[in-house]
Every structure is written in structure tokens, then in C-alpha cells.
């Protein structure tokens, strides 16, 4: 028996490391490229310069795209976490038969191709005048980010004993106060973690933004695609590197928040 176990674990080990390698390789390629001296993309890069970072930080165009993305991502994080938490509460605590249907609808945006959603939202937003506006971006990104908030909060809410709220109500708390003072503090780390996910999803969402961006309002990913079509300088890997760092920081934060719930 023993040798076959070793073979199995060897195969599993190889597989796991291969998966990890595929995830890490693009990062290993992109990051060095951002420091290349030539004004075209090359790997391995020649020389070392911070020029592309300097260019990004000094360009007004890049900054306006970045600030729009930050604004949209911030508002998306708030909207998605509030709506997502309310929806999760309804699904976990509610007794209605609609809960399952509701769950499928909420998770829908993960399954539906973003391009289909983008085209639909584009045509709809054009008619009602939301296309290329901050509320338009926020609405669209909230739809995309909701499933992630629902995922992170469902598990946490399931672990909070429903009779805690009953106890709070028997102590004189209204249903809303019971939620606000008892349940919410207990699931808050997961809600914040969901909000951070929503922020990242909005911040580097390219497809829907591609359709919704107007001439003036362009999100950072939209601006990056434009640059890829026109110039393709190492400013793209430079921004990509910054985005990677941001994502790692945010996801690490989300992880720390969730591990706090466990203790």
C-alpha cells in the first residue's frame, strides 16, 4: 500500500505546483517588464528604470481614469456590501420559498458572460441616460460584485445563532436594533471583506466599463485597453504591477478580517 500512496501524493504535489506556477508566471513576467528601459514591451527586460511609474504618476489622463475608478470602486463597495448583506439576511433567515430563486438570481452575474451583461446594460443605460456616468458604473459594478458579498456573508450569518436576535428582541430591541446591535457586529468582518472584494472587482473590471465609458469618463482598465491598442509602452506593466500590489493588500486585508470572525 505504501508506495502507491507515495505515487498518489507525488502526482497531487506535481499538480498543485503546476497550478501555482501557472498562476504565478504571469506575475513574474509582468513585474520585471515594468522596469524595462525600451519603450516597447520585452521579456526579459533590458536595463532598469522607474520611468514608466513616473510617467503614470505624472499623467493627468491616467490620474483622472484612476480617480474615476477609485470613486466607482468605493461606491460599489458600499452599495454591494449593504445590498448584499440585506439580501443574504433575507435568504438565510427568511422562510420564503423564493429564497432559492433569489439566490440563483444573485449568483447569476457570475455565470452570465460579462459581455452579454455589458451589452444589455449598455443599451438600457443609453436609453435612460446612465451610460458614462458614475451612477451607471456603480450600478453595473454592484451587480457584478453582489455574488462575492453574498458568498462571504452567507457563511458568517449561518454561524450566528438566530435565537440571539430573538433574545435581543425579548430584551426590548426592535428587529432592526437586534440586527444592528447583535448580528451585524458578529458578521462585520465578513461584510467588510465582501466590500473589499467588491472594491477590487469594480476597480479592475474591463468589459462592462468598456461599453459604459464615454469620451470623458473612462475607468482605469478602459484607459489601459486604449493604451494597449495605441501605444503599448511598459506603462501598462507598471500599472498592472501597481494593481497587483493593491489587490494583494486588499485581499490580505479581507483575509485578516475573516480570520478575526473565527476567533
Amino acid at each position: 500500500m505504501k508506495p502507491s500512496i507515495d505515487k498518489g501524493s507525488l502526482a497531487l504535489g506535481t499538480y498543485v505546483y503546476a497550478v501555482l506556477a501557472f498562476i504565478v508566471i504571469p506575475l513574474v513576467i509582468v513585474i520585471p517588464m515594468s522596469f524595462g528601459q525600451n519603450d516597447y514591451l520585452e521579456f526579459p527586460p533590458k536595463g532598469f528604470t522607474l520611468r514608466w511609474y513616473a510617467e503614470y504618476f505624472s499623467s493627468r489622463q491616467w490620474w483622472s481614469a484612476t480617480s474615476l475608478s477609485v470613486e466607482v470602486a468605493f461606491l460599489t463597495a458600499i452599495c454591494a456590501s449593504v445590498i448584499g448583506t440585506a439580501a443574504t439576511y433575507a435568504m438565510v433567515r427568511g422562510r420564503g420559498r423564493l429564497a432559492t430563486l433569489f439566490q440563483i438570481l444573485l449568483i447569476g452575474p457570475i455565470i452570465v458572460p460579462h459581455i452579454a451583461l455589458a451589452v444589455g446594460l449598455y443599451l438600457f443605460f443609453q436609453t435612460i441616460g446612465l451610460s458614462g456616468t458614475v451612477p451607471g458604473f456603480v450600478l453595473a459594478h454592484t451587480v457584478l460584485a453582489l455574488p462575492f458579498v453574498v458568498f462571504t456573508t452567507t457563511a458568517a450569518l449561518g454561524k450566528v445563532d438566530a435565537s440571539l436576535e430573538a433574545a435581543a428582541m425579548s430584551c426590548g430591541a426592535s428587529r432592526f436594533s437586534a440586527f444592528r446591535l447583535v448580528t451585524l457586529p458578529l458578521i462585520l468582518p465578513n461584510v467588510v471583506s465582501g466590500a473589499l472584494f467588491a472594491f477590487i472587482i469594480s476597480f479592475d473590471e474591463p468589459v462592462v466599463s468598456f461599453f459604459l465609458s464615454g469620451v470623458r469618463y473612462k475607468t482605469l482598465p478602459r484607459r489601459m485597453f486604449e493604451d494597449i491598442e495605441q501605444n503599448l509602452t511598459p506603462i501598462i506593466p507598471a500599472i498592472a504591477t501597481l494593481l497587483i500590489v493593491l489587490s494583494i493588500v486588499v485581499l490580505l486585508g479581507a483575509h485578516l478580517m475573516r480570520s478575526r470572525t473565527k476567533n
Binding site: 435565537s163 430573538a166 428582541m169 425579548s170 426590548g172 430591541a173 426592535s174 437586534a178
Partner: peptide, 10 residues
């Protein structure tokens, strides 16, 4: 429930 002023132990 929250307006009844009863004590409850679960």
C-alpha cells in the same frame, strides 16, 4: 415581542 416587557431565558 420587544414590546411585551417579559423576561426570557432560552
Amino acid at each position: 415581542a420587544n414590546k411585551r416587557n417579559l423576561g426570557m431565558v432560552f
